[in-house]
Design a protein around this nucleic acid. Structure first.
Length: 914
RNA sequence: GGGCGAGUGGCGGAAUUGGCAGACGCGCAGGAUUCAGGUUCCUGUGAGGUAACACUCGUGAGGGUUCAAGUCCCUCCUCGCCCA
């Protein structure tokens, strides 16, 4: 019988579900493993990227299960968010049915993966049963002062009289109505994530990828320095600086245009200019303002402030590169030692006063400076700290900074301070399709929370999605109008929560999705928490993964885990250190890109040098002509391989060749050829979208899973190649035939039998190590190698039946996590009573896996000159003697004197002959 | 501009972390099976070189450390991500 994936896969998916094979239940007698893969947004179609993310995570969970763990691997939907609301506005479909229809479709698609999801624990974040607790968390955070309202710059549409989300603003205009949008300070909801900044910098005890730790650390951006206050007629201007040692070189100040003292500092002569500038910067987003390539702009206010270190009066400017949301919204400018300040000073002809004497160089002279000096040296013209050395070190590690901070503190001019780049998390969204914020605004302007018994505040369903740019909640009177606790008329909060808040705690809800007295059941939590392995895309490296860490620390501090900790203790497990971080181990997969396109048509002209064309002219485009015309296949340095009608031609591009690429305007160079090739290749443009449903139909889920895990380095991803999948299918066809075809030994050979057993046990060891490490491609390669050994053994029929059966059953066991259906079918057909997925992981016997002899490489002066078979336990002396004794080596050693012999038994001997 | 990561056959990718470069697969070529195509089965497949060996070259470029470098160090080029 041939391998028919269709009947097998649906049969086993149904059987596993009926038997509840993947239902995970608390069992204190067994070790647990809680595996979570990032839950999908219900866009309506499962794409190949979902398979690439989820099926290896499933394989890992299955592997852990076979290793003896009680494994929980749930699935859910992150269902609030923008696309549903856009669909509502564009197609007049309410987000509710749109979302739930999509979820229904995706559930079916997800089932075709054959993953071990425990559907009993499914969680949907837009379900009132779920967001009741999202609101509850918000309430606790509000009560604890972690959720608060404060002014922030927002996108404001004067014509619509509404705040717009960043995604709604394109080029400074509302994307729907085209009305202008300005930046305006307004009251917004925040979470005080900066309170946890220091703790979030600590990754002790968790196993996360280094790049993520680096990204989060940079994102938090801790910098040490001092807070210094400048006096001005309009009031005190505090600034934060990382270089208080250069205060004596501060020649002007710059305030953000939104700074509250701007109006007070502005002189009458300057008022018109200042007001125009403030209005102009309101039209720019923060992102635009931070573009460094932009020309420096700014306006003098006409006001002055006093530098506290020397009493000098320095001019106060405003410029939009200073952001109100960073630090204090004001900076001191030291043009001699800061490049941005230097450029500003030169542009506006402001004074530059050097205060660092560069190491081993002449003293800086202001008129001659063409850029700021940021290197080490000695402080000069800096009052009390003159003569102190300055280094490249940051904070107090730098003697000049330490001296300056000490002086500031002694003289009451400033204090040592730490500033973070991280800002508090703006969580309010002027959107409908999100979790409501359970706040009531009283008529006197104060706020109160909705009582727990009234949670959740439910989104009204009878809303109109008129494309006004405003959230329907803002004009839905029955929702809006309510009463406060005293019975007086009041208004509901109409902001909803950022969807990152919903995805902050979903793995807790999986534990008990229908629990109705708390966000999660402490009895479940005590057993399953924390999450042991969390997998998902690296695009969530900062936001989601940082917010998740923050949120768990908040939960801990709010005492949310109190009952869980009690339950844990009752079961004799120590809760210490288990509730500081959400995920003990995190791994990120790469991304699957669109299928490679053939390279572009290219024509080259030049002079032939043998087979190689030395090109003086290259053209890329559709209608091109030249000596060589074909598709660009590959490029290394100056060498191009071009597939022409006559085969592959090598073209060397001369250094001064003329390059013309039709799709890239202007002058082109050779490097752009490669870039162009790559960009085209990786484009996800229409026509190369990979549909997993079609692949499953044609090859089967097992083949798709195997191919995805085999063809890529999981951490890297890469372009899809539709041809390669045939190899995965051939492998499974072979597994089918080897497992179901029977085997009759003819002439049993002791050596061949031992070899097969050795290969089997080596394979177990290799696959196990690879699966622990998420190295799916090499795990599959090791299985394919055993497949090749089995094919050879069957052809020769020279291994014992026992060795054959051991090898086949082992192959099925280790392949089971990757290809769950075919392995189950073949496993059962071989007479096993229970599921392969409930069977234990095979044990690698180190005795059987050990090689008796190995191939030893003999090198002469580092080059391989001979190979011999030696016993695996050969001593260094014997290895050396054996190496020197071979005929070929004798030939080489006779040419000179043996100066040295390095023996690394049993793999290598290197003989130095000179 | 700064930080992190990467660059290996025609392609995807291996290489036990300093010890045989190219595992495994795709593709391609030759052969067998077949009326034929496909499937399947054998064999080969980094480049040069040879009748075949030998040998020479070869992991983006250049230099260095070492008995030994894809791997470590320095300079440079290119790509990707993050931050400015």
């Amino acid at each position: 019988m041939a391998y028919d994936h269709k009947s097998i896969e649906s049969k086993w998916q149904q059987a596993w579900e009926e038997q509840g094979l993947y239902r995970a239940e608390v069992d204190w007698s067994r070790p647990k493993h809680y595996a979570v893969t990032m839950l999908p947004y219900p866009s309506g179609d499962l794409h190949i990227g979902h398979w690439y993310a989820m099926t290896p995570s499933d394989a890992r969970a299955r592997f852990m299960r076979m290793k003896g763990y009680n494994v929980l691997f749930p699935m859910g939907f992150d269902a609030f968010g923008l696309p549903a609301e856009n669909a509502a506005v564009q197609n007049n479909i309410h987000p509710w049915p749109w979302t739930y229809d999509n979820i229904e479709r995706m559930r079916i698609q997800l089932r075709t993966m054959g993953a071990m999801f425990d559907w009993e624990r499914e969680t949907v974040s837009c379900d009132p049963e779920y967001y009741r607790w999202t609101e509850w968390f918000f309430k606790r955070m509000f009560e604890a002062g972690i959720a608060y309202r404060s002014k922030a710059l927002v996108n404001w549409s004067e014509t619509l009289q509404t705040v717009l989300a960043n995604e709604q603003v394109i080029d400074g205009k509302d994307e729907r109505t085209g009305q202008p949008v300005i930046q305006r300070m307004m009251e917004q909801w925040f979470f005080a994530i900066t309170d946890y900044a220091d703790e979030l910098l600590d990754f002790e005890g968790i196993d996360w990828p280094d790049p993520i730790q680096t990204m989060q650390t940079n994102w938090i951006g801790r910098s040490e320095g001092a807070l210094v206050t400048f006096e001005s007629p309009a009031g005190e201007i505090p600034i934060f600086t990382t270089r208080p040692d250069t205060l004596w070189g501060a020649t002007f100040m710059v305030l953000a245009p939104e700074h509250e003292l701007v109006a007070g500092l502005t002189s009458d002569e300057q008022r018109e200019q200042v007001e125009a500038y403030v209005a102009a910067s309101a039209r720019r987003t923060e992102l635009e303002r931070m573009e460094e390539s932009r020309d420096k702009t700014g306006v003098f206010t006409g006001g002055y402030a006093v530098n506290p270190v020397n009493g000098s009066n320095i001019p106060v400017w405003i410029a939009d590169y200073v952001l109100i949301s960073y630090g204090t919204g004001a900076i001191m400018a030291v043009p001699a030692h800061d490049q941005r300040d230097f450029e500003f000073a030169r542009h506006f002809e402001l004074p530059i006063v050097p205060v660092i004497h560069p190491e081993g160089a002449a003293k800086l002279s202001e008129p001659a400076m063409v850029e700021s000096y940021v290197g080490p040296g000695t402080m000069v013209d800096s009052g009390p700290i003159s003569g102190v050395a300055t280094t490249m070190a940051k904070g107090r590690q730098n003697p000049s900074i330490a001296a300056a901070i000490d002086w500031l503190e002694e003289n009451g001019a400033g204090t040592e301070s730490v500033n973070f780049r991280l800002r508090d998390w703006l969580i309010g969204r002027q959107r409908y399709w999100g979790s409501p914020i359970p706040i009531i605004h009283r008529s006197d302007g104060t706020m109160e929370t909705v009582p727990d018994s009234d949670l959740p505040v439910v989104l009204p369903e009878d809303v109109d999605f008129v494309p006004t740019g405003r959230s329907p909640l803002t004009y839905h009177e029955p929702f809006l109008n309510t009463v406060d606790s005293a019975g007086n008329p009041a208004k509901r909060e109409t902001d909803t929560l950022d969807t990152f808040m919903c995805s902050n705690w979903y793995w807790f809800r999986y534990l008990s999705p229908h629990f109705d007295t708390a966000p999660f059941d402490p009895e479940e939590a005590a057993y399953w928490l924390p999450v042991d392995t969390y997998t998902g895309g690296a695009e969530h490296a900062v936001m989601h993964l940082l917010y998740a860490r923050f949120f768990v620390k908040v939960m801990r501090d709010l005492g949310v885990f109190k009952d869980t900790i009690e339950a844990m203790k009752e079961h004799g497990r120590s809760p210490d250190g288990w509730f500081d971080e959400p995920f003990r181990q995190v791994r990120n997969q790469g991304q699957i890109l669109g299928e490679e396109r053939r390279g572009d048509r290219l024509a080259a002209d030049g002079d032939w040098d043998g087979e190689v064309l030395r090109a003086t002219s290259i053209q890329v485009g559709e209608d091109v002509a030249g000596a060589v015309v074909g598709e660009l296949m590959n490029r290394t340095e100056r060498i191009l391989k071009v597939a022409t009608a006559d085969g592959v031609i090598t073209v060397e591009v001369l250094a001064d060749a003329h390059v013309d690429i039709a799709s890239i305007p202007g002058d082109n160079d050779i490097n752009q050829l490669k870039q162009h090739l790559d960009v085209e290749r990786m484009s996800k443009s229409r026509g190369n979208v990979v549909n997993p449903d079609e692949l499953v139909e044609q090859y089967g889920a097992d083949t798709v899973r195997t191919y995805l895990m085999f063809a890529f380095d999981w951490l890297k991803g890469g372009p899809w190649d539709s041809r390669g999948i045939a190899g995965a299918r051939r492998f499974l066809d072979d597994v089918w035939k080897l497992g179901t075809g029977g085997y009759e030994p003819k002439a049993v050979n002791e050596g061949a039998t031992t070899e097969l057993r050795r290969a089997t046990h080596k394979m177990i060891k290799k696959v196990e190590a690879d699966m622990v490490d998420f190295k799916w491609n090499t795990a599959v390669a090791a299985m394919m190698t055993l497949r090749n050994d089995l094919l050879a053994a069957r052809r020769d029929a020279n291994v014992s039946g026992d060795a054959w059966n051991e090898a086949v059953d082992t192959l099925l066991s280790v392949l089971a996590p990757i290809a769950p259906h075919i392995t189950e079918e073949v496993w059962r057909s071989r007479g096993h009573e229970t599921s392969v997925h409930a069977s234990p992981w095979p044990a690698a016997d180190p005795e059987l896996a050990r090689d008796e002899t190995v191939t030893m490489v003999i090198q002469v002066n580092g080059k391989v000159r001979d190979r011999i078979e030696v016993p695996a336990d050969i001593t260094a002396e014997d290895a050396e003697a054996a190496a020197l004794a071979t005929e070929r080596i004798a030939e080489w050693t006779s040419r000179g004197e043996v100066r040295k012999v390095i023996a690394r038994p049993p793999k290598l001997v290197n003989i130095v002959v000179g």
